[in-house]
Design a protein around this nucleic acid. Structure first.
Length: 171
DNA sequence: TTAGTGATATCC
DNA sequence: GATATCACTAAA
């Protein structure tokens, strides 16, 4: 299910599908950490003014243009690494921000908890021993909401319900 | 509500 | 070369 074709689907399909999945991080010392993904956000290409690619292909956004399944990690506010999974086809700059996991309620805290940094940028989630994603065990209920921290975007993009949240009360 | 933090994009 | 901005967080 979570193979190359899965990640080459549209970001609006992949982002909700990653909610409830498990992020598995293997550290240099061999230990393993597993966190349930509880929130994702979709960033949908050059036409989405909230997406890094809306400013064109730059050194930072280069990774977003790569094939679905590529890991996109960048530094924000000088101290927080953001973890994204590229979706869609090559030269189609879309990506899913992993916003929160169980026990880590923010993208910066999440990467800190998993010791993720820029060294994982541009790797493939499909063939990366240090970081992989395992599919959700069963059905999950999802709530949608507006994306966070994108006040710089055009009003119509700010209002899109492209944040996907695991409904804990679900079942 | 605001300071902190530094890479990146954009402007001289 | 200089400046403004930023997919955030912790402390107040």
């Amino acid at each position: 299910m979570m193979d190359k074709s899965f990640y080459s689907n549209d970001v609006l399909e992949v982002a909700p599908a990653l909610v409830g999945a498990e992020l598995v991080r293997t550290l240099p010392d061999g230990s393993e950490k597993r966190l349930l993904i509880t929130q994702t956000e979709a960033y949908a290409g050059a036409a989405d003014t909230a997406c890094h690619a809306s400013k064109g292909r730059t050194k930072r956004s280069e990774t977003l243009y790569h094939a679905g399944g590529t890991i996109y990690v960048y530094l924000c506010y000088g101290m927080y690494w953001m973890l994204n999974i590229v979706t869609g086809r090559e030269n189609d700059p879309q990506g899913v921000l992993i916003r929160a996991c169980a026990g880590a309620d923010g993208p910066g805290k999440l990467t800190r908890a998993l010791s993720i940094d820029g060294s994982l940028n541009d790797r493939s989630i499909l063939s990366c021993p240090e970081l992989r994603i395992e599919p959700a065990a069963g059905e999950v209920n999802i709530i949608t909401d507006k994306r966070v921290g994108i006040n710089y975007a055009a009003p119509e993009d700010r209002d899109r319900l492209w944040r996907f949240i695991l409904d804990a009360r679900g079942q």
